[in-house]
Structures are given as structure tokens and as C-alpha cells.
Design a binder for these strands. Structure first.
Length: 665
DNA sequence: CGGTTTCGCTTTTTT
DNA sequence: AGCGAAACCG
């Protein structure tokens, strides 16, 4: 154990009770957790599989695993390091029967759940204009607040919430019928199991002798409940967090969980890590000045031993193309001056749609870049289809999956036939797949239709049986061959390039299935599919392919990372702080978001804003972010007027006129 | 039933 | 501007 300051060392070596580590930005908190895991196993001789470390993202878990294995070297027994959701899955996989689930249950991702909810909403209120996303968010909020259907207070609800309340019960029942869970169930399910079954709880509590939680300020109510249920008697819990970096309130994160901890664990030991090892003095000053505008239940003073460094630049840009070009050119310029490779640069954005413009500017200049937080691999239709097939083979009760692929590729089973199938299924109480081969269904449709559907069902059933004995990659290969999926993709894509691309995506999915299977050959198809759903392949690609490119990431995706040169693009009102956050009175969280962005920078920081920006295809004027006024004025350098503005002055055109002119592109 | 067109909605952030 | 879902046509 090297390079630890006294506070860090204390945090690592304290192991006999509950501990809270308040770790400021760049104070080496990941190192503290990794070192503590190694210390527990090496110095304290704790059985490695009894040490559990929990993170929020797969990326963070991967990072943690690699740091721990560097410290420990290769050995047989390893600590458990995963996201909350993967831990929840582990518990659920062992105990699902207690909730009434059956073997091989499916995990539905957000898109699948949205489709299911849309259907339930149509049934409740045909022709409603309430967005599925709103209903989904409301139900998700009830789930992570551990509020079951029937206990929802009905007063003061918006139309969307009322609709959500009506769909909540049927939604849960549908999931149960399909033998499926959603992401929220991966936490709330285990909580319910551990709460209600004392023997199961004590079994897990003796398994988890040491629990460490990263990014603790982001835990929601159900995650905190899970933590408490797992550690109660031994109280050997270490949580690390920073209330100034809480940026997930919108999905239920409760920074109050930090204060709650000292109430629930009276012996709580608190340690503050206040030395920042990352940022230059100037950058840290700016960050401190900004965040001082937020209230602080746990005051801390971050300091840096680094020199002051460069001042913070502000780019005032005429419009998006000006912003992206200046940043892209600046990166090229600095790189030519020998100020680092592309991987030392990051462009951070508030929302995903900003990325497209930067991608364009980067490609034009042949700047390598790595996009994170964008579209997931699983958003591609071909991948969703394949995963739906695999899910159905693993879990024949997964009606949701069957409905998705019943006519993909085309096999002449259209909406009318499906309607008959669904109606028959709800009458006789069988799954759709079982119904397809039932007498009741054969009596309802023509002989020709019944033949088509039942043969399709028989084929699926045979593949399901194959999946019980054969390795997952073989099942997948058989499936693709049987449906001739490549030909289908070739037919339905426009252009050969698109077809090839989609076929390659499927190849890649096959490789992942092979890899997951190879990692543990005892895993059945349903385990492989669960692993696919939970860890985002797009995320993993990043680590495997060479990452020598400019990072292009949302502020949320950038948390926990650091770069020598950071550009914060779109430092504007309505973007940062985001318009909807201002409307909902959540400017403090946006300020924390800006704080997270600023503290990613080691040496230089550049803020940029546009004076006009397209919104839904319409040009709208913009103002610089209010946060700009909260930074120390003397530390800011305003970088010259944009090229376009000079041109406008010299030609003497009217302002509006020239604005229109320059935005034409 | 399947393919094409038009309309309307989107932009917060993610396991 | 760009994308998906409903609507419409063959």
C-alpha cells in the first residue's frame, strides 16, 4: 500500500465497523476502496468472496476490478465487485422462488417495459396523449421508493400519475405472468425477499462480511434498504461519497442517505478526504467558488498542492457550428503544440443531441474520438430482435419477447392472427407459445393459419429444449441459421452498406455470447441473456478497443473520469442549467453537474456557449449560463470574438441579417 | 397483409 | 432536423 495520505490510510485500515468517507472530487476515493479491498484480503485475511464492493456503473465496476487485481495479483478467490443491479440479480437468481418466479426468468430492459406499458395504457385509456415515458418514470419511482400498488395516495395527482397508478398493478401482474422482471425489480425484489425471510437474510448476511459502496450519494431508497439488510448485525460497511457530486436525483438518488447513515449507525466513523490530486489550483478554485452557491450539510474544504496553472478560457460562439469548429480546431492546435495525444482531451456535453455536431467536426478533421453515453448497442433493431429470440428460448413464458419476433422475419403471422392468439391465451390461461399449439386455438382459426402458427411454436419449443442441454452459442447459431437472419437483414436494410453493418452487429453479439459462455461454461442460456442485458456492450467495447481518442461524453457519463484538457460545451442557460431543471426548481443539481464537469479537468478548462442555437429545427437565441457569473472573474479569459462576428462588423450588415446568413448552413 | 407516406413529437441525464 | 408510429394505399 503506497502513496496514501493519513486520511486515506485511516479510511483503508478501519475495518471493524460502519464508516462514511466523505471524498471530494479528485481525492482518490476509488484508490481508497481498491486499497481497502486488498487490505482486508491481504492483511486481515478476510475470505475474498465475503468482500463485496458495489458501484453504479459497469464501467466503474470494471475499473475497480482492474485496480484490485493489480494490487492483489492473480489468485483463485476473488472479491465480488459489481453494480447494484448485478448484485440484485445474484440474489434473485438464488431466491426467485420466494417471489413466485420460475426458472429462467427474463430481465426486460427499459424499451421492452415501455412497449408493455404502452399496451396497458391503450387498454386503460384508448387514444391518450400521455407519454409512455411519464408513466414509466412514475412507476419506476414507486418501485424504488418501495411503494407497492394499492398504497399510492390518490390525491393531488397529475393525469399522467393517475394513469400510471391504474397501470401499476396490471404492469406487475403482466411481468409476473411473463416470468419477467424489470431493472427496478432487481433491487426491490431482493429487498422484499430479505425483509420477509429471516433465514435467507441471515444466510446472506453471513456471506457478506464486508460491504463497500462507491458513489454512495447516488443511492436511492431501495438501494439503501438493500445495503442495510445485507450488513445489519456485523455493521462492517464502508461507504464513499460526495454530496457535491450527487447528480442522479431525477432517478431517485437521495443524498440525504448520507445524513441518514449516522442515525442508523450510531457508531459511524466519518473521515473526510479533502486533498485534491487532480486539478490545477485555478480549476479547483473555480469549482469551489461555484459549488459554494449550494447549501452544504457536510462542509468540506478541498485544497490542491498543485500550482495555479492556466486561466480558464471562455469561448463565446455565434452558433453550434462555430462552437464545434473552434473546439475541434483548438484540440488540433494543442495537439500540434505537443500538449498530449487525443486521449488527453475531453469534450463534455449536457445532453446527447449535442454529440452529433461534434462527431461531424471530428470526422471532418480526422480527429479520433470515443463517444460514451450515447446510443446503446442494444438500441439497434437487429440486436433487440436477437435478444428477444434468446430471451424467449430461455423463458418460453416471455410473451413480450414472442410478440416482438412473432413476425420477424416475416412468416405471415399478422396482426389479426396475433389478436386471436392473445385472446385465446387470456381465456385458457396459457402462455402465448403454449396457446399456439393448443386445441382451443386450433378451433378458432383456419386450418392454414393454425398450421403456420403451431409449426412456428413447435420450432421454438424444440430450440428451447436444445437450450437446456446445448451451449448458448450453438443455440444462437442454430437460431440464426433456421430463420436465415442474414438474408432478412439484407432484404430489409436500405443499401448494402447498411445490411453489412447490421449483419456485423449480429456477429458481434454472437461473439459476446461466446465470450460470456466461455467465461463460465456452466451458465445456461438464461444466465447468458441476463448478463447481456445487464452489462452494456457498448460500454465494454470502449475498454477493449484502443481508446486513443478525444472523449466525447455527457456530464453524467464523465463522472469519475479525468482528462488533462476539458472543454465544457454548451455552457448556456436552458442547457446547463437545463430548461426543465430550472422549471422544476432543481438548479442545485445542475450546479453540481457543472461542478462535476469542471473537476474532471487536470490542467486546462475551456467553457463555451453559443449566442444562438437550433432547437427542434428552429433557431433560437441563447444566453451564457448563470454559472459563469459564479466563477471567479479574474480567473476567466474571454477568447476573442468569433470569426463570423468580425466578418459581420467589417461588412456592416445588420445584425439580424447576418445572423440569418451565418445560420443558413 | 405488406409497403409507403405522412404526421407529430422530440431534447436531460441511465442501471 | 431527424425519427418512429399511425394512416393510407395497392
Amino acid at each position: 500500500m503506497r502513496h496514501l495520505n493519513p486520511q486515506q490510510r485511516q479510511a483503508v485500515e478501519f475495518h471493524d465497523g460502519p464508516m462514511l468517507v466523505l471524498a471530494g472530487a479528485g481525492s482518490g476515493k476509488t484508490g481508497v476502496i481498491a486499497n481497502k479491498i486488498a487490505y482486508l484480503i491481504d492483511a486481515k485475511k478476510i475470505d475474498a468472496p465475503s468482500v463485496f464492493a458495489i458501484t453504479f456503473t459497469n464501467k466503474a465496476a470494471r475499473e475497480m476490478r482492474s485496480r484490485v487485481s493489480t494490487l492483489l495479483g492473480k489468485r483463485e478467490a476473488r472479491p465480488w465487485i459489481s453494480t447494484f443491479h448485478t448484485l440484485g440479480l445474484r440474489i434473485l437468481r438464488a431466491e426467485y422462488e420466494l417471489l413466485g418466479y420460475r426458472r429462467g426468468f427474463s430481465i426486460l430492459d427499459a424499451g421492452d417495459c415501455a412497449a408493455l406499458l404502452a399496451d396497458l395504457m391503450r387498454r386503460d385509456s384508448p387514444g391518450t396523449d400521455i407519454a409512455v415515458a411519464a408513466v414509466q418514470a412514475a412507476i419506476s419511482a414507486w418501485k424504488y421508493a418501495l411503494t407497492p400498488p394499492g398504497t399510492i395516495p390518490l390525491e393531488g395527482m397529475s393525469a399522467a400519475e393517475a394513469l400510471a397508478a391504474r397501470c401499476y398493478g396490471p404492469y406487475r401482474e403482466a411481468l409476473m405472468t411473463y416470468n419477467a422482471v424489470d431493472f427496478d425489480d432487481l433491487i426491490s425484489g431482493p429487498v422484499q425477499i430479505l425483509k420477509e425471510n429471516e433465514d435467507v437474510r441471515s444466510r446472506w448476511q453471513s456471506q457478506v462480511t464486508h460491504l463497500l459502496v462507491d458513489e454512495y450519494q447516488d443511492t436511492n431508497l431501495s438501494q439503501y434498504a438493500l445495503i442495510r439488510l445485507l450488513v445489519e448485525p456485523g455493521q462492517r460497511l464502508t461507504v464513499v461519497g460526495d454530496d457535491d457530486q450527487s447528480i442522479y436525483a431525477w432517478r431517485g438518488a437521495r443524498p440525504e442517505n448520507i445524513a441518514q447513515l449516522s442515525k442508523d449507525f450510531p457508531d459511524l466513523k466519518v473521515i473526510k478526504l479533502e486533498q485534491n490530486y487532480r486539478c490545477s489550483g485555478t480549476i479547483l478554485n473555480a469549482a469551489n467558488a461555484l459549488i459554494a452557491n449550494n447549501p452544504h450539510p457536510f462542509p468540506k474544504t478541498l485544497w490542491s498542492a498543485h500550482g495555479f496553472g492556466d486561466r480558464i478560457r471562455v469561448f463565446s460562439c455565434s452558433a453550434e457550428h462555430d462552437e464545434t469548429e473552434r473546439i475541434a480546431n483548438d484540440i488540433l492546435h494543442r495537439r500540434l503544440l505537443g500538449k498530449g495525444g487525443f486521449a488527453d482531451f475531453a469534450v463534455l456535453i449536457r445532453s446527447n443531441h449535442q454529440a452529433r455536431l461534434f462527431e461531424h467536426a471530428f470526422r471532418e478533421r480526422e480527429i479520433r474520438y470515443v463517444l460514451s453515453g450515447g446510443r446503446s448497442f442494444f438500441d439497434y433493431a437487429e440486436i433487440r430482435d436477437c435478444v428477444a429470440y434468446l430471451r424467449l428460448l430461455a423463458n418460453p413464458e416471455d410473451n413480450n419477447a414472442l410478440l416482438r419476433i412473432v413476425n420477424t422475419p416475416r412468416r405471415a403471422i399478422g396482426t389479426q392472427t396475433v389478436k386471436q392468439l392473445v385472446e385465446t391465451s387470456s381465456e385458457i390461461g396459457f402462455s402465448l407459445l403454449a396457446t399456439a399449439q393448443s386445441l382451443a386455438f386450433s378451433e378458432r382459426v383456419s386450418q392454414q393459419v393454425y398450421k403456420r402458427v403451431s409449426e412456428f411454436a413447435a420450432w421454438l419449443t424444440s430450440l428451447h429444449e436444445m437450450s437446456l442441454t446445448e451451449p448458448a452459442p450453438d443455440v444462437f447459431a442454430t437460431l440464426l441459421r433456421d430463420v436465415d437472419y442474414d438474408s432478412w437483414l439484407a432484404q430489409t436494410s436500405d443499401g448494402e452498406a447498411a445490411a453489412t453493418r447490421r449483419q456485423e452487429n449480429v456477429r458481434e453479439l454472437q461473439q459476446w455470447v461466446a465470450r460470456i459462455h466461455a467465461a463460465d461454461e456452466s451458465r445456461g442460456l438464461s444466465d447468458v441473456v441476463a448478463a447481456l442485458t445487464l452489462f452494456d456492450i457498448a460500454e465494454r467495447q470502449e475498454s477493449e478497443n484502443e481508446t486513443d481518442g478525444v472523449a466525447l461524453a455527457t456530464l453524467h457519463a464523465a463522472k469519475g473520469l479525468e482528462y488533462t484538457h476539458v472543454y465544457l460545451a454548451g455552457f448556456e442557460e436552458n442547457l446547463l442549467p437545463h430548461r426543465s431543471s430550472v422549471e422544476q426548481d432543481q438548479v442545485e443539481e445542475e450546479r453540481r453537474l457543472a461542478y462535476v464537469g469542471i473537476t474532471r479537468a487536470k490542467q486546462t478548462l475551456t467553457l463555451s456557449f453559443c449566442r444562438a442555437r437550433k432547437r427542434f429545427g428552429q433557431i433560437e437565441p441563447c444566453e451564457p449560463s448563470r454559472f459563469l457569473n459564479e466563477l471567479p472573474r479574474d480567473e476567466l479569459v474571454w477568447d476573442g470574438a468569433p470569426v463570423d462576428e468580425q466578418a459581420r462588423r467589417s461588412t456592416g450588415r445588420g445584425t439580424l441579417d447576418s445572423l440569418k446568413q451565418m445560420l443558413k448552413t
